[in-house]
Amino acid sequence: MDYLIQQVINGLTLGSIYGLIAIGYTMVFGIIGMVNFAHGDVFMLSAFVALIIFLALSQLFGTINLALALLLVLVAGMALTALWAWTIERVAYRPLRGSFRLAPMISAIGMSIFLSNFVQWAQGPNNKPLEMVPTEIITIALGAGSITLSWKQITIMVTTAVLLMALWYLVQKTPLGRAQRACEQDRKMASILGVDVDRTISLTFVIGAALAAVAGLLWMVNYSQVNFADGYVPGVKAFTAAVLGGIGSLQGAVLGGILIGLIETLWSAYFSLAYKDVAALLILIVVLVFMPSGLFGRPDVEKV
């Protein structure tokens, strides 16, 4: 029993990271119907950004309060990664918006290759290790056994929960969220009613990237290392999470991320570590066969 609970906690931690990345995929798809293949690499880039800022902070100020340092890294990392995403959208996607449907996706694949190669060139091909949060653990007695909760896991889950609440508020309660939802439902109509569609799309990329930056920092917290190729597999899994939850749906992306995290962790715990990626993707296939629009997706109505 305690083993199961332990694994569920591990799965939720991993799932939080996938969920944060998945939001970026799902929001962009919802508003312009495009799969942003570069999103995983933006996530990887943001992990490097977090690493560099963290090192810079500790160089400049020595050992400072860890919580404060993490908060600074979080805010600065979100801002810098958002700037990257904004630039990418302006340079690689917006000029192709009036073009045929596949053009921006091909451009996104190109951008994905560019980003990972750029990081490989700038940072070198090796793993960059950095222990941000100490590995101390809290042991909680539970019946006959006990479960352990690390500070890393607490940091990850609390940060994710707070940011998801902020995102929910942003989308449901602010004018920007209203403009986003309007664009998602009928872009042309939104434009006629005075919504600046291009800016709304840019800001959607920015928000997605800011959340990916959170995931990037949390990745560093969790694994304490990153390399230039780390955008790929988490990116694919987060995209899988978005599809599993119903692409275009925010709560779907979060739930999908958590599910993928849980499946992966439980599979590794009870069956085989080697096949954990296969398990996650297998579940995706099963869900898509029986629920093609995902858990929260609306059945797709082709707009005229």
């Binding site: 004018p175 209203r178 403009a179 309007a182 939104a190 009613l193 005075g194 919504v195």
Partner: peptide, 10 residues
């Protein structure tokens, strides 16, 4: 109805 007044609001 509020979205229709987005421009005024901005």
């Amino acid at each position: 109805l509020i979205v229709a007044q987005h421009r005024e609001l901005m």
